[in-house]
């Protein structure tokens, strides 16, 4: 079971929405037993990221690039609905599901 984490300001609303969408897609693709997305609090991201296989970021920044120790995919497409299929494909490929 691979762990995907999504972080937002409180680990409650935006991250949970994104995680629910990813989990829904995993289920539709028959991959629900292989990976699971979880919402976490960005303030404790360092604690969670060490135990995760993939980070889905919904906090893009135009200035000041962030670097993460694990593979990272943008989660914005899941929120806007634009480009979500490609983002999901990227997740599946990175995790080799």
């Amino acid at each position: 079971m691979k762990t995907i984490i999504v972080a937002c300001g409180g680990g409650i609303a935006t991250s949970a929405t994104t995680a629910a969408k990813i989990n829904g897609r995993l289920e539709d693709m028959g991959l629900a037993g292989k990976a699971k997305a979880e919402a976490v609090d960005i303030k404790s991201l360092d604690m969670f990221i060490s135990n995760a296989d993939l980070y889905v970021s919904v906090t893009p920044m135009a200035r000041g690039q962030q670097e993460y120790p694990i593979p990272t995919v943008s989660g914005i497409p899941f929120l806007t609905g634009i480009g979500a299929d490609q983002a999901m494909q990227q997740i599946v490929e990175l995790l080799k599901l």
Binding site: C8, G9, G10, T14, I42, V58, T59, G64, L79
Partner: peptide, 16 residues
């Protein structure tokens, strides 16, 4: 334009 919740700004350290 897709209206989203605020956390897409949450990466900015100034806020915290």
């Amino acid at each position: 334009v897709i209206g989203l919740d605020w956390p897409i700004l949450a990466g900015n350290p100034e806020i915290w």
